[in-house]
Simulated assay, not measured.
Amino acid sequence: MVKIGMRKPSLKKSISARTTGKTKRTIKKAVIPGYGKKGAGWIKNPKKAAYNKVYKKTTFSFWDLFK
Results as ranks from 00 to 15, higher is better:
64 D>G: 15
62 F>P: 06
21 G>N: 04
18 R>P: 00
36 G>S: 08
18 R>W: 09
44 K>I: 13
66 F>E: 04
47 K>N: 10
20 T>L: 04
4 I>C: 01
22 K>W: 07
24 K>E: 08
33 P>G: 12
12 K>W: 00
11 L>R: 09
1 M>I: 07
13 K>V: 02
61 S>N: 12
47 K>L: 08
7 R>A: 04
11 L>N: 07
22 K>S: 15
2 V>F: 09
37 K>Y: 08
31 V>I: 09
27 I>D: 08
24 K>G: 15
19 T>Q: 07
34 G>R: 04
32 I>L: 13
2 V>L: 04
24 K>H: 05
55 Y>M: 03
3 K>T: 00
28 K>F: 11
33 P>R: 06
56 K>E: 03
44 K>N: 11
41 G>D: 06
49 A>Q: 03
66 F>C: 10
51 Y>S: 12
39 G>A: 03
20 T>Y: 08
4 I>H: 08
47 K>R: 06
3 K>H: 01
13 K>F: 12
65 L>D: 00
54 V>I: 15
41 G>R: 01
39 G>E: 03
19 T>F: 10
42 W>R: 04
47 K>P: 06
24 K>I: 15
12 K>C: 01
55 Y>L: 09
9 P>C: 15
40 A>Y: 13
50 A>I: 10
67 K>S: 15
60 F>I: 10
26 T>V: 07
